[in-house]
């Protein structure tokens, strides 16, 4: 593959980041009725009613979410390549980020799958629907550490990036570490059924999920910038007049 094609794929993959955020908000949060999300304190019957009242939307939301969460994969790959270039010969942290991103996709995907299963036969016993909903929420809320490691790996490489124009500014790296740390309260969802630390609470849901999307969006901006810089540099070498540069970076 020639370098120009390769750069174009990198750019498309980096743009998968914003595409993921938008589709996640629309389908997972919106159609999936996760804003606000169901409280763990709901009785089994209340929860079952919640599914049957919004059946089509919930089905659409989670089925599409399971497709669009895969946009996280090409994005993770671009970040891995960018980190690899910084790390050089032994891309340990790039690999860690790569694994973390891949597993994040599975964690998010499986949680949505449990809810899709719950919505598949809404006539089943309410207690079964509750079990599936519980499994989905604890799946996504207790297994955040894959994402935390992805973020910390990216931040550490970012901090070690000594180029004149680094991949991420240093403040973004520290923000990334903080966003990763902000997931910790989500572990408390394994115990709490009410209050701010329950899976529908401010400190275990709204805050960490906001931080995750915030980091993801910020990182996407800088990753896209980096790919654009490489495209400009490539076109500059190929045609010193820079006639291709404007066409490629559009």
């Amino acid at each position: 593959m020639d370098e120009r094609t390769s750069l174009r794929y990198e750019l498309i993959s980096a743009w998968c980041g914003p595409a993921f955020v938008i589709t996640f908000v629309i389908f997972w949060l919106g159609f999936g009725h996760n804003l606000p999300n169901p409280s763990p304190a709901l009785t089994a019957t209340e929860l079952a009613t919640r599914y049957s009242d919004n059946l089509s939307q919930i089905r659409l939301g989670f089925i599409v979410s399971m497709i669009t969460v895969c946009l996280y994969m090409p994005w993770t790959c671009v970040l891995a390549m960018q980190m690899w270039r910084i790390e050089g010969k032994s891309p340990l942290l790039a690999s860690l980020q790569f694994m973390g991103g891949a597993l994040t996709v599975m964690v998010v995907s499986f949680s949505a799958m449990y809810w899709a299963v719950a919505a598949f036969r809404p006539e089943r016993a309410a207690s079964d629907i509750q079990t599936l909903t519980d499994t989905g929420w604890l799946c996504i809320d207790l297994q955040y550490c894959c994402t935390t490691l992805q973020m910390v790996a990216a931040a550490l490489v970012g901090l070690a990036d000594k180029r004149t124009v680094p991949l991420f500014p240093r403040w973004v790296c520290y923000l990334t570490i903080w966003c990763g740390i902000s997931f910790f309260p989500a572990s408390l969802t394994g115990v709490m059924k009410t209050g701010p630390f329950a899976w529908s609470g401010v400190l275990s849901f709204y805050f960490p999920y906001f931080c995750w999307l915030c980091w993801f969006s910020t990182a996407s901006v800088y990753m896209i910038k980096e790919v654009r810089r490489r495209i400009t540099a490539y076109d500059g070498v190929k045609s010193p007049a820079g006639t291709f540069a404007s066409g490629m970076s559009r």
Binding site: P169, W171, Y174, L175, V202, F207
Partner: peptide, 16 residues
């Protein structure tokens, strides 16, 4: 830049 992290952490605990 570490003060971004520290500020954000203080903000988080402020929320708590």
């Amino acid at each position: 830049d570490v003060w971004v992290l520290i500020g954000a952490e203080l903000l988080t605990f402020g929320m708590f």
